[in-house]
Amino acid sequence: MEISIDVLIFYLVSLVVVGSACIVAFSRNIVHSAFSLLGTFGGVAGLYVFLGADFVAAVQVLIYVGGILVLILFAVMLTHRISDIDITNRTVGRIPGLVAVAVFLGILVYAIGETDWVKVKEVAYAPTTATIGNLFLGDYLLPFQIAAVVLLVALIGAITLSRKEIKE
């Protein structure tokens, strides 16, 4: 069987994504779970590169690794009793978790079955930045603006919540 090098790299990247996602889910140490997200986020950026989405890959690393992961780490590390190694990810119990997973799996399988998959054999490795910019400021201007307003509202909300009350 012919195994080309990019297929090999693809499976390597996928292994990193799935492997670190497994650590995120199964690790009994919540900090290890949080750090494993690094592999998941980074690996997904690698998958974007395979799809020829260079801009999205860089933004994935910038936002998810540089922003969201750091935020999660902050939240986890500043949690009370973090030195207790007993904190696990399990809080709800097995039965509700199992039901949720089963429902979600059903939806995923249905969605995968229904989707008309385009073969990504002919990925064009061309610059995508300008196209994305033109679409954002052209066809998708309204969703783009609404997303911006939602983010602004979230920002103001966060400031309001975390602001120290000045008491007389």
Partner: peptide
Amino acid sequence: NIGILYLLAITSLVVV
């Protein structure tokens, strides 16, 4: 093609 964006992104690994 995304040189400077890549640079900003990859250096955020340092924080982690």
